[in-house]
Amino acid sequence: MMKILVCDDDEALVSMVRFKLSRENFGEVFKAADGREAKRLLDENTFDLIISDIHMPFHSGLEIVTHVRQVLKKNTPIIILSAEGLEETVLQAFDMGANDFITKPFSPAELAIRVKRLLNL
């Protein structure tokens, strides 16, 4: 059973993504409403995939990426899901080690296919 972590402070979005991913039978979906909760979950568990917003309370999505790559030293696939698609931000995200970048508004179907690819299903 795969474990997926979704970090976003937009409740409606998290609920939609959870619904979609569990419906596709990708695995168990955990949620974190802010960067601190995300960090705590990441420290205590091992996930197979992380989907994260950029602007969240406490720690940004980019900080989460750095945390996973440099502190936890894991290569868990990370998808950044952000309303902000400025070139500089996208470049920075990939540079820090994100595996994919999706801008909002996003298509749930597209997200699912990208998740599938990263999980090698």
């Binding site: 937009d10 409606a12 939609m16 909002k104 508004p105 298509s107 749930p108 179907a109 597209e110």
Partner: peptide, 15 residues
């Protein structure tokens, strides 16, 4: 309001 909010985060066929 709910539809408007969702529309802002979702695109494609779902939208």
């Amino acid at each position: 309001n709910q539809l408007v909010a969702l529309k802002k985060t979702i695109s494609g066929s779902s939208s």
